[in-house]
Nucleic acid binder design. Structure first.
Lengths: 256, 256
DNA sequence: CGGCGTTTTGACAGGCTTCAAGGGCCGTGG
DNA sequence: CCACGGCCCTTGAAGCCTGTCAAAACGCCG
């Protein structure tokens, strides 16, 4: 795999042992059984530290590995020939990235880091080994894939059928909700590494109109967003504007 | 599972033995190994025959089974409180439906038959058994999930970033392409069970504008669409209007 | 201080939705 | 056999929503 455009890609640095994986501390994630943990330890070949802006998976390329996000934000996207960009969704800690490339031929989308990102590296050619030896983990991979599809489905509804204001409100609510589950929210405040251009490209809107819509949202005082800090002031009001709150995931979420 | 609104749901009819499964005749699908076939035979508990319009998976409900489409067309969709509908994608033969519901808690979308549909019924509570005993089949399930996500990704790009004309052209090209792989096209002609309302709901456009855009497309003479028959006249021209042809799937596609 | 990426604002054109109404096709029932 | 209703397709008109163009303000960093 190449890390073009990433001045700071540091493969083979210190690899955090899985026992101390930051993800294992998260209450929203399920625990590994001892033998699973043992297997995953051997499965993790490397750790990657990326700078913001680094594209670590590229549309059209073949990837030899798949990743789990250990920390930081990233986003999946596709671009058309003339440069139009569509952000498909955002990847946060505990999200798996690159499964499509691992299962199929080549990547059909790219992934870029928004913040400094730490990735757990899993070798693509051993994925089948995981399926053979640990069906429970294989099931978890499927769980993760199914959940991601669910998120995209909801996103599709937004872009297809929601008004501009609803779209913005829903996406912000969605991201806040996910970050909150991961313990990234303190006092209703969240470090938010997204620009309005990202928002626009995710929502299928122009930058200008995104900005004006966001302004309309801000005067409702349901949220505050200054600099890189996002603050939830009135979740109920925001959910109202979004046309409904986020559906809860009941089952215990796996990670690998 | 309930089959509300389906006057003709015929469970427990004659179940086609897997050896004679119509899908196995398709050259685009991979073969089962003998022991896989043996297992799948025991895994298939039933066969469901549905009428057009039957909703066989419903948003918000728990489903005890997942399905493989053996024949016919269906579509996945979500509706907002006020009735706005978004079609997420279309399901054709060899597509798996309901995996989200089988892996997670409850369905986040509904699925409705467009034509008479025959479904292969697989019990949800035995999915883990499949994962334990046949990692190769488990891998196939993941493959199918990954591919579906890929299709939705592309759809998301359409809705978010393509013009109305490009959207219509791309979706028609996409459906034609898939139907073609499945041997449903003869002489460039295809039985097309979709109304303009379906197109509109899939593309996130109004019915009126979909109609007018379709008219613009028809005068290019790249396609013909009369009654229930769709005919491809100039695929190159259509691909041009769509802003690119469909990316080919290289790896041999599995089905279960 | 200068440069660059991001955020803001205004103006304007046109794409798209909505409202409205008519036509065609087909199955049902008188 | 014909009338009727339902569903789908079609078309026109009006106006809002949204994209594009342009320019300026802001904030951050070397």
């Amino acid at each position: 795999m190449s890390l073009m455009g990433n001045p700071n890609g540091k493969p083979n640095g210190q690899v955090t042992p899985c026992e101390q994986c930051p993800l294992r501390r998260l209450p929203c994630l399920r625990e590994f059984a001892p033998d699973e943990l043992e297997f995953v330890k051997r499965f993790k070949t490397d750790e990657l530290h990326l700078d913001p802006g680094a594209t670590f998976l590229r549309e059209g390329s073949r990837s030899d590995q798949l990743f789990t996000v250990l920390s930081g934000w990233a986003f999946r996207y596709k671009v058309l020939d003339d440069g139009r960009r569509q952000i498909l969704n955002f990847a946060l800690p505990a999200d798996m990235v690159g499964l499509q490339g691992a299962v199929m031929d080549e990547m059909e989308h790219s992934v870029e880091a928004l913040t400094p990102v730490v990735l757990c590296v899993l070798p693509r050619n051993r994925l089948y080994e995981l399926y053979s030896q640990f069906p429970s983990l294989a099931f978890d991979v499927t769980w993760l894939a199914a959940r991601e599809e669910q998120l995209i489905d909801e996103h599709l509804v937004s872009i297809g059928r929601r008004t501009a204001l609803e779209r913005v409100a829903y996406l912000l609510l969605h991201l806040y909700h996910r970050a909150s589950e991961l313990g990234m929210v303190k006092d209703g405040k969240l470090q938010f590494p997204i620009t309005q251009q990202h928002l626009a490209d995710a929502l299928g809107m122009s930058l200008v109109h995104t900005n004006k819509t966001l302004k309309r949202l801000l005067v409702t005082k349901s949220i505050r967003w200054q600099g890189r800090t996002f603050e939830m002031l009135d979740r109920g009001a925001l959910a109202e504007l979004a046309g409904g709150d986020i559906p809860q995931t009941r089952s215990r979420r796996p990670f690998i």
